[in-house]
Design a protein around this nucleic acid. Structure first.
Length: 497
RNA sequence: GGCCCCGUCGUCUAGUCAGGUCCAGGACACCAGGUUUUCAUCCUGGUAACAGGGGUUCAAAUCCCCUCGGGGUCACCA
């Protein structure tokens, strides 16, 4: 119907990529891809004190990981740059100047101390309204000029109209109306002459031709201020959509990094959740396709996503659901993909060379085959393979008990001596057939066979299929462990009998 | 405290705009059973919610009002 949409994600680089921010970025990106629009990344880095280059990088790399690479942004450039607010100061100042000329702004000589005092008194008196009381709003212009000329410190405030109703047409919340009397005369230029966030945002969204501002609900009250700035500047406002907030997993408050480690996107990468699972999960927090669809690929999301089905209510982070989804994604992967997922974790744990040799590759393949159905995130593979790489097995009590059973010694001895040497350790199914026929020949139940062998090989009672374990260890190491287990079993029966 | 947003199973949600097909559906989690050499997967079944109170209506999870609860925001931060 009209020009393609232009959306943006505008984080401030203060340390990490917030999971809620990641979702905001995803929703924006989804819409841009779906409608052939443009996804812009803009750094809101006007606060020099708090911003670091490391934090910028964290945001860039986080978006890369999620596959939400901007069409325009600090790294990729574009026709509406620069895309970092720190580089756009002249632009803001220019518009601020026009606002001064038009009389929309007035100088305010209230000092920080004065304002703090005012606020303290308002709180003490339980005043109905907090905030600036407009004490310099009607200062005589000549007097103002005189004080400025005298070098008196001052900020510039926006003369917010009185007695008007400001209506925000929000795609998710519908029409939200607020009285302009509830909005104080906001500072647009600080005493040091720098512009304030709300001014910068309006100018940027306008200059960058943003058509839809999709952001967290925490910006809802800012929007009314911004609406007034749009009016003062004589610009048309974009369409707004305020997303419900993501709350901490156990309820109270929005996610903060201090209280909730899961607020940081990096955590998910570190724990080894497949990206596509994270994307799927994020999309479903606050949005749903219908009453049953849970698993959706990125392509399906691009096709079906829509703001009209975004919920207005805040949501807790459903961590259990991520674990489940992640497991589903891993199970749907090819063996090669699972290997690739495990690889960095095993390398980091020192269990795999960065450039693995053939034997290592083979072992990785076998581990992947054995654990693919069991693991819910790739990072689990480290502790799950402790038994494989342990120089000395750390036996669980139950496993030890299994080695102490009456038939344990003869089973181990038989498997070690008669079966293992000629069974095909490359082929778990074949090994199982061999073992079964051997056990049957002895009139042994398969369970009686399996338990002591598993105990000797892994020191545990639970884990991958027994013959996957043999395959992972290889013939030689399996034999060594079986022999060691046999010794224990004999010791146990000798001591016990 | 002012202003604003929100309120369906423990959790994520469908249903609310266009009232009946909803003694409320799905998923995760949980519990029970089955398959399996263990675990996991897989299969079957189960527990579990319309925040409360008033209206309107033949009929309300759906519309209106009040209460309660949760959240956001009130910086010369962004």
């Amino acid at each position: 119907m009209s020009a393609p949409i232009r959306v943006r994600f505008a984080p401030s680089p203060t340390g990490y990529l917030h999971i809620g921010g990641a979702r905001t970025a995803l929703y924006n990106w989804l819409l841009a891809r779906q409608q052939g629009g443009t996804f812009v990344l803009r750094m809101e880095d006007t606060d020099e004190e708090r911003n670091t280059d490391a934090a910028r990088q964290t945001i860039f790399r986080g978006l890369d990981w999620l596959g939400l690479t901007p069409d325009e942004g600090p790294e990729q450039g574009g026709p509406h740059g620069p895309y970092s607010q720190s580089e756009r100061m002249p632009v803001y100042l220019e518009w601020a100047e026009r606002l001064k000329e038009s009389g929309a702004l007035y100088p305010c000589f209230a000092t920080r101390e004065e304002l703090a005092e005012l606020r303290a008194r308002q709180e003490a008196e339980k005043a109905p309204v907090f905030g600036y009381d407009g004490r310099y709003r009607d200062l005589d212009p000549a007097e103002a000029r005189r004080r400025i000329a005298a070098g008196e410190e001052h900020t510039w405030r926006l003369r917010v109209p009185r007695g008007e109703t400001v209506v925000l047409k929000d795609l998710i919340r519908g029409d939200v109306a607020v009285s302009s009397d509830d909005i104080e005369d906001i500072i647009l230029l600080r005493a040091n002459g720098t512009p304030v966030y709300n001014l910068a945002v309006v100018i940027d969204d306008h200059d960058m031709a943003i058509t839809h501002v999709i952001r967290g609900e925490d910006h809802l009250t800012n929007t009314f201020k911004q609406l007034i700035i749009y009016r003062a500047l004589g610009w048309d406002e974009p369409t707004f959509a305020h997303l419900p907030l993501i709350l901490g997993p156990s309820g109270e408050g929005k996610l903060s990094k201090r209280k909730h480690p899961e607020a940081a996107l990096e955590l998910y990468q570190q724990k080894g959740y497949p990206v596509e699972a994270v994307v799927n999960w994020l999309a479903m927090i606050g949005w749903s396709l219908d009453d049953k669809t849970e698993i959706m690929s990125r392509e399906e999301l691009v096709r079906s996503f829509g703001l009209d089905r975004v919920s207005a209510a805040g949501a807790r982070l459903p961590m259990d659901k991520l674990d489940w989804l992640s497991g589903e994604y891993i199970r749907a992967m090819s063996l090669e993909e699972v290997e690739a997922g495990f690889r960095p974790f095993l390398v980091e744990a020192g269990r795999l060379s960065a450039d693995p040799n053939d034997a290592e590759r083979l072992r990785l393949r076998r581990i992947a085959a054995a654990e693919k159905d069991r693991v819910r995130r790739f990072g689990e593979i480290v502790e799950r393979t402790d038994w494989v790489f342990a120089a000395e097995l750390d036996f669980e009590p139950k496993a030890l008990a299994n080695l102490g059973k009456a038939e344990a010694a003869s089973v181990l001895e038989g498997y070690l001596g008669e079966v293992l040497p000629k069974t095909d350790v490359e082929d778990p199914a074949a090994m199982e057939a061999d073992a079964r026929s051997w056990a049957e020949g002895r009139g042994l139940g398969f369970g009686k066979f399996v338990h002591p062998v598993r105990a000797a090989l892994t020191g545990r009672t639970a884990g991958p299929g027994l013959f996957d374990c043999v395959a992972i260890l290889g013939r030689e190491e399996s034999a060594r462990r079986l022999a060691a287990g046999l010794e224990r079993a004999r010791g146990a029966s000798a001591g016990g009998a």
